[in-house]
Every structure is written in structure tokens, then in C-alpha cells.
Design a protein around this nucleic acid. Sequence first.
RNA 1: GCCGGGAUGUCGGAACUGGUAGACGAAAUGGACUUAAAAUCCAUCGGGGAAUCUCUCCGUGCGGGUUCGAGUCCCGCUCCCGGCACCA
Length: 853
Amino acid sequence: MVPRECKLTNLSFRQRRGVFLYNSASQRQLARGGRTVEDRYPFSEVEARWQRKWSEANIYRVHTDPDRPKYYCLEMFPYPSGALHMGHLRVYTIGDVIARVKRRQGFNVLHPMGWDAFGLPAENAAMQHGTHPADWTEKNIANMKRQLLMLGTSYDWDREVTSCLPDYYHWTQWLFLHLYHRGLVARKKAEVNWCPQCQTVLANEQVEGGRCWRCDTAVVAKELEQWFFRITEYADRLLEDLQDLDWPERVKVMQENWIGRSEGAEIDFMLEKVGQPLRVFTTRPDTLFGATYMVLAPEHPLVPELATGGPYEEDVRRFIANMKNQSEEERTGAEKLGVPTGAYAVNPLNGERIPVWVANYVLMSYGTGAIMAVPAHDERDLEFARKYYLPVRVVISPPGAELKAEDLEEAYTGPGLMINSGQFNGLAWDEGKERVIEYAEQQGFGTRKINYRLRDWLVSRQRYWGAPIPIVYCSACGIVPVPEKDLPVTLPRDVHFEVGGPSPLTRSQEFIETTCPQCGEPARRETDTMDTFVCSSWYFLRYCSPHETEGPMAVADTSYWMPVDQYIGGIEHAILHLLYARFFMKVLYDSGLVPCPEPFASLLTQGMVVKGGAKMSKSKGNIVSPDEIIARYGADTARLFILFAAPPERDLEWSDRGVQGAYRFLNRLWRLANIIQGLEDSGQLPGEAEEGLQRARHRTIKKVTSDFTERYNFNTAISAVMELVNEMYGYLDQVTEKHKQTLTDILETVLLLLAPVTPHLAEEIWQRLGHKTSIHEQDWPTFNPEYVREEEVTVVIQVNGKIRDKLVAPVDLGAEQLQEMALASEKVRKHLAGKQLQKVITVPGKLVNVVVK
RNA sequence: GCCGGGAUGUCGGAACUGGUAGACGAAAUGGACUUAAAAUCCAUCGGGGAAUCUCUCCGUGCGGGUUCGAGUCCCGCUCCCGGCACCA
């Protein structure tokens, strides 16, 4: 510790023509920044000391307390990859500031941290380095926790959850069974996405442009029997409830698109040959008269039957064989290809016979796997029709134009009136849609239907490092869920890993061999584990009652804490995690285990940290390590820079210069505190200069409070505090008789406002000022509106909208006087000379605009 | 192609409800201090003119419009970033 009395008594910062007057050599050196002991703050000692003290005092511990208003502030928990990167630093700093401000505003703040600890990298590390995934994960967690502590974050570590530990995945398994018993788990044989690199299947959401989201390997289609969560049952609610969420518009839109609701109808076309109907889904029943052919997906069950015995039997067989080798992903984007089946269907509205084709552009997995093609009004159908010389018939006529089928260059998908449509002619398309559906329902050849793009969530993974799916296969009883009392199904530790090989669980006899919970006979365990997104779909609930042993959570706790008031994380989870978590929450809401159907009331998606315009990555060699920055400048500097450099939603360009600037500011504040403490009170009453400082103080409190709590614009909040510090320096520079009390008051305000951002330095100076309790337990400062209200303002005088003069006037000066003053201004009169006065616009307290001609 | 977001000094970014464009920081330049450098402190810092301590013109991606007044609102474009993309 540095002796407090060391500096600056009686220092007078008088500046005359660039000459400072000092009382002693050492003061002179200090004032111009020569390095003395107190010149730069000893951040590493200060930060370590306070981290220890806060941890000993357990000041961030919270409890369920229905008598107090709660606030749940949550950042997405990290995957323990080994070390924090700058993106982590950013998200955890943002969350920490919000939590700290809310706490000081009187809320009971839940701010927990944990680890999304299952996942493939641990298993890959096991194979590459011969470590066990559990050990590898544990080591990484220890390191990342150390980093989080060094960052000065305010988590309640008693609530730490680690998803790979049995006392957590016990409840992940419990939830699987809960869904199972609610009929929301299905075992289905389906064409699924297989990643050859990861040696496992993937959910639809985890395939990006045909590639694995994790390793970027092209996925291949495989027909497998797998476990699914029936998220599609919740499609409508997932869509509807988006409306009320305080989330970024683009995230909502992404989810909306992903769910992809489309309204239309299913229509039956009678197949001539087989005498049974072919059901299609269409969103355009109004174009039914324009259907000139039908298309089936290659996998459609009716295809073989339709082709058999016809002239194209061989062609169809070959076409289907070709398509079999292609995934949906490969087919989409490929050229449209098809063959006629030789069969015909009958249009239920006009009795017309139209040919039935098989083509690659119709997918079995959507709708009914069959469509009616209306080339005049559908882009894709037109492309196909032109290629294979199929007829085109216009049935919607756009206002003020006439379409000719022959020279139609692109399909007309806009609004218009129905034509060539028998009894529906003349109807507007939207009304026509309704009428056709009504008619179809009446006649019994169709029904109203809503389809979704969303597919069920495939949760099986053929990997070891995940929560085992709690299912047993019995030769007598079939599929049997593991009873609750037998949970958790523990992952065996002693297994053998093999590069590129199957999951070690499939060869662990110890794990596989069990007895049937129903009949007691020998049975076999499911060897697949759950998608790690299952673990992360409910962790925010576990934080509410992390030590609960009777269930995944206690209703008393979830009903107090949920929903999360502020959730913070990266945009990359816009669909994946955020959709799954919402689904889980709705299921649990229906079970009465949580008080609300949505988990995250408000979402903040922070931007990336980039350097040289590119995302930090090993391959680009532009990584800045958090450890290095903290060692060099301290956590407070890192936090300050990260918040100051850009608003949270935007990408943040890392700048070493900017970090130094943040560091410089903290030292500037440190020196200011030393200067103020070293002052002797002049003993005078506060005067005008002090009054000015007080106004600045209250203005700053107002600005910082709203920036921190309403807008989350930390950068402008910090710049406001910087301005206040600059004003204090200005005061020291200009005022001979310094008022120590005023300066101390204002310094304390600066500390109180900055404490969420730079918790260590703020605490250090705070306690050096003589306070005995932590700054982080002080009430958030409030401002006095009287002080915020300016008495005098600069009023801008414009002539024809151009600024010609400015004058200082009392804030409440009436419009008439302002006008008078404006017209009296010489500068203004210069611009009025020889012109005709038209009118004068006056905004009291702001401006006067004189309009002349 | 569709949907979303963006474009402001040399750079990161301010300007919250239409009312002083460029806060704050970085860089740069000049000065003070120093044997010197770093650090610190002070000053300047969008562009062009006057010939300079004041005034003037231009200026928020481009072109129009509304308004006394537009970075902000409206219409039409350009470019950049992100997401989705045979979903019938």
C-alpha cells in the first residue's frame, strides 16, 4: 500500500501563459506526470486484493426473496473450450455491468454462471491427446473460471452449474422422460443429416448451407431411426409468442422464417389409373384452374404404382435411383429435372386431365410431397414447364395489364382478378382463395391447411460425451423408458476412444447391458446421447434452484426468478439455442413447472470482436488474448475499453491504442483522486464555479443512468463520465481557491457511476476516501431535477435556417423577448438588410429562425 | 431473388422527440517539461475561400421531395454486412 499523505498538499494548478506554479520539486514532477509512486495505479495488486475481499465477503450471493423485486440477468454460458476469448470478455462484461447497476438500484439480482460442458471437442481432444473428456473439460473449466474471476465479474458462484456432471444431466434425462410422457418424444425413421467428420447426425438447425455448423463438413443424407422432440407441435405458439418479446427485430424475423408458417389448402386430385386421390398442398387455391400438370417427389409412395406398366416405367425407375443418392441439400440448387409417369390426374374443379410428373424440385419432407404446378403463377413451375414444354395458363389477371401465356417471361405472383376460372371468374385473388377452399370443403375434395417449414428436433447423437438418452430396449417389452428412480443413467468413465470410430458407448458392455425395468429380463441400453442443445435448453432454470434434489427445479424458485429479465449472447444462436429453449419453456409451462411461457423477456445480441475488420481467429493470426491484456493493463482497463469502443450490438474493432486510451483515463482518474485528497480546504463557501460542477454532476448522473438502464449505450455513458472528469480538471486548472468538499462529492459520484464498469479501481479509491462499506453495496446515485435544469442556455439564431448568431439567455425566456433579442443582433441584421421579413419561428430555450425573402 | 441491418472527419463512434453535425476517445501536428525518450500537461484538429483570432461557402453514400429548418421524415437508387433461399 502506498502512504496516503504522500502528495500534493497545497498544490495550486494555476496556469499563466503555460507556466505552472508549484510548491516543491516533487509536486512539480507529479503534476506534469513524472513517475512517482502514485502516478499510475497499481492495478494488479488492487484487483487481486479486492477480488479476494469480495469473494470472502460473498457479496454477490443471492436468495429467493419474494418480498424484494427480482432481476434475472443472464449471459449465455460458455462451452469450456480452454480459455476465454475476447467475445467472451465482451459478453460477460456487458452482463456484469447490467447486474451491478440493477443490484445498486435495489433489485435482488440473480447473476449466475455455468458451463455448457458436454460436446464434441472434448471427445476429439481425448482422441488427439489421450486425455479423458471429463479431465479435459474440468481443466478448461478451472482455467476459464480463473479468467472470469480475474475479470472481476459479480457471479453468485454457489449457483454454478456444469452440464456434464451427473447432478445436472440427471435432470436433463428427467426432462427427456418428462417430454416422453407428454408424448413429445418420438422415435422415427427418417432421412437425417449425417456429418461424416463428427460421426453423428445433426438437427436441421445445425446444418448451415448443407454443412455441419461445427466443422463445416458437407453433411450427407442417411436413413436412420432416431429420437426426435416434437417441436413442431409448438410451431404456432413459438411463432405467436415472438410478438411480445423485447428482442432484436432481426432475431425475431429469423425465427419467424425458420418456423415458416404458410397458410393454404390441401386438395385432392383423383388419379385416373389407380382410382385414388393424390393430395397436394398449395398456398394458392385461387390458381387451381391454372394447374397444368402435377409433380411428385421422387420418394412419394405412389410413384412406383403410377409408373408401373406405363410407357415411362424404365425412365422413372432410373430417375428415382439417381435421386436416391442425393440429399435434399444437393437437390436444391441443382437444375430442375423430371420425368413424366405416364399417369393422369383430374382437376377437381374443372374435370381437366393433367399429366403427373416426378421431379427433383419437390421435396417429400414438406407438405404432402406432391404439388399441383401452376406455371403462370409460380416461378419454379414456370421454369420447369418451359424446360419440358408443358402448357402455361394464366388465371390471375393483374390490374391494368393483360398477360399472355406464350410470352410470359416470369411467373406473375402478384395480386389480381381470377380469369379462366369458371364460376370464380372476376373474384379478387385473396377472396378467391377463400371461396375455392370453401367450395373444396363443401364438395369434399379439400381442406384448409397450415404447413410449417420447421421440422421436429432430432436429438440423438452417436457420440460419447453427452447425456445418455434414458431408454432401454427389451426384446420382450420393446422400448422402455428408464424409471425416474433409476436416474441418472451414468456415463461410464472407462471407455475406449478411437479416431473416426463409432461412439465408445456402443462397445461398452458395462454400459449397454442392463435389465428391463418392466420385466427384469436382460436388456440393452440406448447408446446414443442427447444433443448438447438439450442441456442448454433449461440451464437458466437450474440456476434458480441449483441444489434441488427432488427435481430439475423448484417451482417456488422458478416462479420467483423466471423469466430471465435480460439475456445476453451472440447472434449465432438466433435460431438454435433460442428456439430450443423457448420450446422447453413452453412445455414446462404447460406442466406448471414454470410461471411463464417464454424464458427470455429481453434479449441483447452483442456484436463480434474483430481486428483489422476480421473476426479474431487462429488462422488469421489476429487474436488478442484476454490474459495478456489483463496482465498488461488490468481487468478494469479491459472492461472499460470493451464498453467504450462501440455500442454492444455492433461489431467491436479491437484497437491497442484504444486500450491504452482507456488505461490512460483510469490513471487520470487515479491522479485526480490523489490531487483532491491532497488538497486543503479553502474554507470558503461554494460559489459559482462549484455550482457549475454540481450541475455537471447531476447532468451526468441522469445521462449515465439512462444509458446504463434504458439504452445499454455504455459507450456514451462512459464518455459522459469522462466529460465530468475533464470538467473537474478544468476547475482545478482555473480556480485558485479550490473547494475540497465539492470536489470530493463529485469524485464520489464519478466512482459510484463508474463502479459497474471498473469495479476494482472504483472500490479502491472509494475506500481510500474513508468509506468502510463496499461501493458495490451503495445505492445508485439519483439526480436532482432542479440541478439538471439549466438556467441559462445558448439560443441559436438562424436566418433562413442558417446559423448567424448565438446568444445566452435564461432558459425560460419567453418567445417574444427571444425574438426581440434575435432581431436586435447585429449579425442577424446584416443578413436581413434589403430583405422582406416573412416570419419568425421561435422555439424557447432552443432557437429563433428568422425567415426573410 | 426475399428478409433484416448499415453507410457521419484520418479511425472507433456521438447527435435520445426534426432544431448548434462531429460529444468522448484514438491518431496527427505544434508547444511546455526533459540531456533525450517515454509519461504528463496545454493548444490545434471536416473541406474550401477570404488573408486569419473573425467572416463566408460547402459538407452526414447518391438523386429527388416534405419542412421555417433534415444525419434524423417520405420516394427512388448505389454499395457493404448478416440471415434465408426450389418449403409449393
